[in-house]
Write a protein that binds this DNA or RNA. Structure first.
Length: 469
RNA sequence: GGCAGCGUAGCCAAGUGGUAAGGCAAGGGUCUGCAAAAUCCUUAUGCCCGGGUUCGAAUCCCGGCGCUGCCUCCA
């Protein structure tokens, strides 16, 4: 097995070789808890969670760290705007993050460290940087000395000289150099604060990730992930801090997921095109949203629109229908669990081939649809035992990958016997109406059931029903 | 201006040297009392434009054009 991943640090696909043979340690930049998460936040979380699932499928033990940033300017702004306490805000949005992530089928990280619980480690980290000359204190602030880290700019492919040309660098007379960034900020009245050797204050934006990654994953770990918008300055600065402190490589591979674009504009708070996951989940189910987000390569930008979600909904339904039809037509064989192993292996290998190549989920989905097509084709013709075994090979394989990526739900289980009996009763009545060619009554029942989410299919083998999405 | 990347059918999207996967939509069948969120088939002599390399290019090189992200709020 050879797995390739695109490394932002080198701008090319590289053979993935974890530090420890069977273990992968990865860090994903998680949410700042000042608001509900939107589709863009969800993409990053979902893409790397899916990649984690695949690594686990491939036999790696994955230590997956995704932080919760609960100290940050945006939280403080929100505090002021809403006149609420710091704790109220961070607790509310930490809870809502996990609620939304859970609803999307994103697995719990191995560790979900919060900045506020690592203040001592952060202070220690900064102390080390000051003592080895990479940081300096001015009044109650501490800044990182960018020019002391020779590789600064390597991750984001820019030179220190070019950065100085940019006009957006904040003028701050306390800094030795305009490029230097804050490790520790002294507290202003009313802001959350912690004690430190430099006085009361709070950590800067980047230091918490460096610290928590170091504590939980060690000086050098395998993969550092996040959205492309974090490459600069966030990841560049994290790397500078960490490597200046340890003198070692922080992360072997840097993976970045593309942005979600809304109407040609990036989904940012300032534009106001926010689609909260909370809202989205009332309109589309989890498999549809997951399929949508995973149906484009993780590194490319993805357009967000109702049309795209509708497409995904139809596509997922197609997979689901094929699976359901096999279960309906071959219930006994499905239970027995036998299938054509050669056929299964062949298609499985193809899916793995694509996923091994920089986690190409859209290409892998293509293979699933090939199997769906084969399944439907076999189902609609009279077949012998060999074909049946092929059919079952597809069935089990589609279910396997569908489950791994959670892109379709299994048959929706009916948990209400009374409801089922009522549906069956209505279908009996409808059948009687149909026998008498009373189409008005028959259609009324069909439309009525349809309205409450029950789809009716008249087939040569009788009337079938299923839940529609 | 700098850096990274993108431009493939009506829409979405794989493919990065060997002759264009897949999805949605559409059209035509099947099924049906009519239907369906069911199913089958069909749908790019061509991959932004112009050169070049090659037996062979969507794929590599050069030059354009257009688009996106980042350049201290961002996942």
């Amino acid at each position: 097995m050879k797995m390739l991943i695109y490394n932002t640090l080198t701008n090319k696909k590289e053979l993935f070789e974890p530090i420890e043979e069977k273990k992968v340690r990865m860090y994903v930049c998680g949410p700042t808890v000042y608001d509900r998460i939107h589709i863009g936040n969800a993409r990053t979380a979902m893409v790397f969670d899916a990649f984690r699932r695949y690594l686990e499928y491939r036999g790696y033990e994955v230590v997956y760290v995704q932080n919760i940033t609960d100290v940050e300017d945006k939280i403080i702004n929100r505090m002021k705007e809403e006149n609420r306490s710091f704790e109220e805000i961070t607790e509310e949005y930490t809870d809502s993050y996990f609620e939304d992530a859970n609803a999307l089928g994103i697995k719990e990280p191995t560790y979900a460290p919060k900045t506020t619980e690592y203040i001592n480690d952060i202070v220690e980290f900064i102390t080390d940087l000051i003592s080895n000359g990479h940081a300096y204190q001015v009044d109650g602030d501490v800044y990182f000395r960018v020019k002391s880290y020779l590789k600064y700019g390597q991750l984001s492919n820019r030179s220190v000289d070019d950065m100085l040309v940019g006009a957006r660098i904040e003028v701050n007379e306390k800094k030795e150099d305009p490029l230097d960034f804050a490790l520790w900020k002294s507290a202003k009245p009313g802001e959350p604060k912690w004690n430190s050797p430099w006085g009361e204050g709070r950590p800067g934006w980047h230091i918490e990730c460096s610290t928590m990654a170091n504590v939980l994953l060690g000086d050098t770990f395998d993969i550092h992930c996040g959205g492309t918008d974090l490459i600069f300055p966030h990841h560049e600065n994290e790397r500078a801090q960490s490597e200046s402190r340890t003198g070692k490589t922080m992360a072997k591979y840097w993976m970045h997921s593309g942005m979600v674009e809304f109407g040609g504009d990036k989904m940012s708070k300032s534009i106001g095109n926010v689609k909260y996951i909370e809202q989205l989940l009332t309109l589309y189910d989890r498999p549809t949203i997951r399929f949508y987000l995973l149906s484009k390569h993780y590194r490319s930008p993805i357009g967000f629109s109702v049309a795209r979600l509708e497409e995904s909904k139809s596509a997922v339904r197609r997979i689901y229908n094929a699976i359901s039809m096999v279960e309906e037509q071959l219930p006994q064989e499905v239970k027995e669990g036998r299938y054509d192993e050669e056929e299964n292996e062949q298609f499985n290998a193809e899916i793995e081939k694509y996923l091994d190549d920089d986690f190409n989920t859209p290409a892998a989905f293509g293979v699933i649809f090939d199997m769906v097509k084969n399944t439907n084709s076999l189902l609609s013709s009279s077949i012998g035992n060999a074909e049946k075994m092929r059919l079952l090979a597809y069935y089990h394989l589609i279910k396997k990958w569908g489950k791994l990526f959670d892109i379709f739900q299994g048959s929706k289980q009916v948990d209400n016997r009374l409801a089922v009996k009522l549906i069956e009763l209505l279908l009996d009545i409808r059948q009687k109406a149909r026998d008498e060619e009373n189409w008005k009554i028959a259609d009324e029942i069909r439309n009525g059931l349809n309205f409450i989410g029950i789809a009716i299919m008249d087939t040569p083998n009788g009337t079938k029903w299923r839940y529609s999405t």
